[in-house]
Write a protein that binds this DNA or RNA. Sequence first.
DNA 1: GCCCGGAAGGAAAACGTTTTCCTTACAGGG
DNA 2: CCCTGTAAGGAAAACGTTTTCCTTCCGGGC
Lengths: 342, 342
Amino acid sequence: MTIDIRGIAKHLGLSVSTVSKALNGYGSVSETTRARILQVAHELNYYPSRAARTLRSNRTEKIGLVLYTNTPLSSRSSEYYFEIIRGAATASEGSGYNLVLYLTVGNQRDRLINICRSHEVDCLILMVGTGGVDDPVDLLLEEGFPFIVLNKHPHAANAPYLVSDHEQGAFDAVEHLIELGHRRIAYLGRDDDPETSGDRQAGYCRALRNRDLDLDPALVVLSSSQPLGAYQAMRGLLELPGRPTAVFAYSDAWAIGALRAISEAGLAVPDDISVVGFDDLRASSLTNPPLTTVRQQLTELGKQATEALLKQIADGEGAAPLRRTIPVDLVVRKSTAGPASA
Amino acid sequence: MTIDIRGIAKHLGLSVSTVSKALNGYGSVSETTRARILQVAHELNYYPSRAARTLRSNRTEKIGLVLYTNTPLSSRSSEYYFEIIRGAATASEGSGYNLVLYLTVGNQRDRLINICRSHEVDCLILMVGTGGVDDPVDLLLEEGFPFIVLNKHPHAANAPYLVSDHEQGAFDAVEHLIELGHRRIAYLGRDDDPETSGDRQAGYCRALRNRDLDLDPALVVLSSSQPLGAYQAMRGLLELPGRPTAVFAYSDAWAIGALRAISEAGLAVPDDISVVGFDDLRASSLTNPPLTTVRQQLTELGKQATEALLKQIADGEGAAPLRRTIPVDLVVRKSTAGPASA
DNA sequence: GCCCGGAAGGAAAACGTTTTCCTTACAGGG
DNA sequence: CCCTGTAAGGAAAACGTTTTCCTTCCGGGC
């Protein structure tokens, strides 16, 4: 039915090796022979068998994208993940690779070992949702399997990663609030994502220090990713004696929870309180008022991770692990303004 | 380094075939031998090579998910796609399959042929974004490659598909508006997605006929997926002499465009005009007011498509192509109410 | 005339499984 | 005692490439 590399060889009275070389641009084959081979391959509708190629050459030409999370995925994060996936898929396809998706929930250590050992893919992009990033990272380092951690700082010193500049984004957001005149600015963080929330909190602190503002511990509240987490945390902040005049939230989802708490308390955004989010998901332009937020280049993140990983594979073990940060942008909408007291 | 099936055989003084049979529960192997083999396989950390297995048995144990679209993907649809992907990925993993993602933009006919012929995957789930569904479907039918079309009715008579009940969802939405007392109800459709928009329009028409209401052609407006398409179409509707008192929109995105046009015209939702969307994306609960809409079970769609496809493969050519519809639910929020005139 | 080198092409060994067809041994029936 | 059937296990042929060595041939330098 489907034609073989052997079929082509027979058809032309050549040897299998010559055909293979011609098709792959390998050894030395005369121009005319190569042309004839390509011609016939095309005419006979030849498509190489991936499996055979993989078996012999030990390259699958597949990239695995694993999403590693402790808690079930909420549809809140769909857009976040899909944009990254989109970037990765496009870049893979562009390099002749396929993207294999592993959306595992829970600590699937065994599954990960299995993926490495049975060589399902050539390398892995790790997207860690909630829960520690370290367990899988250590495992992969141990296995000597090529990988890159996406958008979260791994603890292991020699683990390659590519992350948005969470710290700088947070700095910019808080700086923006300070410039508007705010002095009591809260950070509404996330307690089950220490790496990312930590980075953003660090940026928040740096921005305050940078302007010699006090860092009031009462204004830093971490909450879980329960639907009501950020909402309740915000209610807590509103009841404080010295209520903050502005809030920098861990993410747009957190900011939306905050908006709700504020509006239920009969306060107005941005007149009474300013709010800044992080991510710039589509929903954030639909809130009331439209949210000021920090935009991550998600598609770019997926794309660059893929490219970096492929480069790393091509360079072999020798190359230093890639550790890079990509910039984020503050998007000013209507949820921030000068404080009422100003 | 990594242990072989041969290694296990040697280790136990058995033949390769016996080991293979034991591992796959195949031919006849005594219980004690099988136990010893499994034991040793585990101890030596044996993982079968996917490539070799595929080469010999001609099964890749991979499902391809292709997203086929004419226009570049807008991030508006991220959530839609990701929820489907999530369902498909979970179901695949559950059946021991991998999910390979092909997010191709444009009419990649050649790529599709390549996927079939080089047997990259065992079967395909087709998600068609914009543009005709038929070209790829015809191709796959011709190739005799197992596939299923997701959430859109293919024209080919014998093409397998799994779709949300667009028609019934539309019927329910319009019925809901009629029950509220509306008589002049518009349909805000999409012109570059004839299959889906057509199904929904059919449901709209049936609901009107069902209550003996006039079908005013001026109240049916199709617009493109440009960001401003639905917005402008809605403006047109508002300028009509006999303005509609309710609008059923092709999707939540369309509805959001409509909301904007209505609010800019100084009218209120739902007081002056009621609006219903379709999809129930996350954004639709954030609009002002929260949108009444028809919820699709996207994750379920991905899951069932995967299961159906795997079943189809297992049953072989014999089985009739699967053509199934899965139900949708009307979600009533705050964007619908009785007409002002009532 | 001899030797050397490079270019073109070929033979054959992998790669790690699955699967078909054998062999052997043993038990049970007649 | 012979024949048959069955269970347990083995030999070997695939599967379709890539890749390493060879062989052959021819031209050119000395």
